[in-house]
Design a binder for these strands. Sequence first.
RNA 1: GUGAGCAUAGCUUAAUGGCAAAGCUCCACACUGUGACCGUGGCCGAUGCCGGUUCAAGUCCGGCUGUUCACCCCA
Length: 428
Amino acid sequence: MKPKPVKGMNDILPEVSATWQYLEGVVREIVQSYGYSEIRLPLVEHTELFKRSIGEVTDIVEKEMYTFEDRGGESLTLRPEATAGMVRAGITNGLLYNQRQKLWTAGPMFRRERPQRGRYRQFHQFDIEALGYAGPDVDAEMIIMSSRIWSRLGISRLELEINTLGVPEARARYRDTLVEYFTSVKSELDQDSIRRLDQNPLRILDSKNPDMQGLIEAAPVMLDFLDDESAEHFDTLKALLDAAGVRYTVNPRLVRGLDYYNRTVFEWVTDALGSQGAVCSGGRYDGLVEKLGGKPTPAIGWAMGIERFVDLFEASGGTAPADDADVYVVAVGDGAVNEAFALAEDLRDRIAGVRVEMNLGGGSFKSQMKRADKSNARYAVILGEQEIADNKAGFKPLRSDEQQASVARAELAPMLASKIGKPLTAGQ
RNA sequence: GUGAGCAUAGCUUAAUGGCAAAGCUCCACACUGUGACCGUGGCCGAUGCCGGUUCAAGUCCGGCUGUUCACCCCA
């Protein structure tokens, strides 16, 4: 009986991980260029943390968390998202005491949903948070930063939607009005909407049911309930985005499934990935730090789903740079292997970033050449009886018509370095 | 959690209810120190699992499991 993986938890195979590494590298570089620093967080937190931050009556907390009792009887949960842990770490390490923090983290998150394209039980996120910044300038910078990621990678099938939820009081007033409105037309609501009426009435606005669209169009809008300060915050954000040339649409029905958001929320959506169109989303959560036991601290953050990001990158025709070897070392004859190892190490010492693949497992000359070919290496270096006797090495281009050459051992590194365009290391 | 589609070799796909096939991959040979292309040969399956109908089931029926898509939710 073959072992089976856990449903919704996937292996990231080498052919795919090259793309992951490339994209993660690009995002890391961009995020750090805005002055954000990495923080590494535990995958497991106390269950209570997520209940208090995400909200007791959200889908995530009610039915999607991997919660278990550890041997000491504590209720622990595999993190379903990163913000709660980030804020907790800020509080417990005193990072927010009269300080501001710009942080990012990345790694696996866990939600027990039914898997489909772009939705897995173990999935991965990049998470960027700015704590202690009241905005709206940070709000704009965060969005501009995400926009830079897309343009850098040639991803175009994405649109930005933004909205504001106002302060909690305004949101509560709006919520009451909304409940009143939908209750008055309850007989026309579908099953899902009736359920949401109690649980999360704002989500009714998000319904994809065509029969509901008329009712939703006619519903009261949040913008009419906005407090003056939030309205001004939102206007400034829009002005900053306009000035930066970032295009967006205001979607008054954009609400979040996590309870901690207020004011700015945004989402990058695509139609290229089937039904899971949200690639990246976030918003402001000014009340969360205090709610979790810190002192009042404004904050904003966003998360990007890496699986969806990779999928979208590939759907946009993007490919990661090849990570094939530069050179494959062929060693024929028992005496040659020792020398070949030394030669391979020498190349790695002397050429910065060179990728040298040593033939392993012996084999005939022919089979070694076959492996060299299949490795996609640009060059083969050949060491046999003859070369060892002459203190030379065969240098054979595998991807061009150039002639094979016999090169003095000492000249091999400089020659290879110039062929592959990588620098010799200093001091050699 | 709900609904629908799909399940044959490592991968992609064949097989009017009648002997389970092919291509690719991999290995070897041809070619005893030179890869790719061509050729020859080899490896690899109890057709996802359990049951039923039938002289006969990969094929039809039922259940299960897995997977995909959609709903839902969201990254």
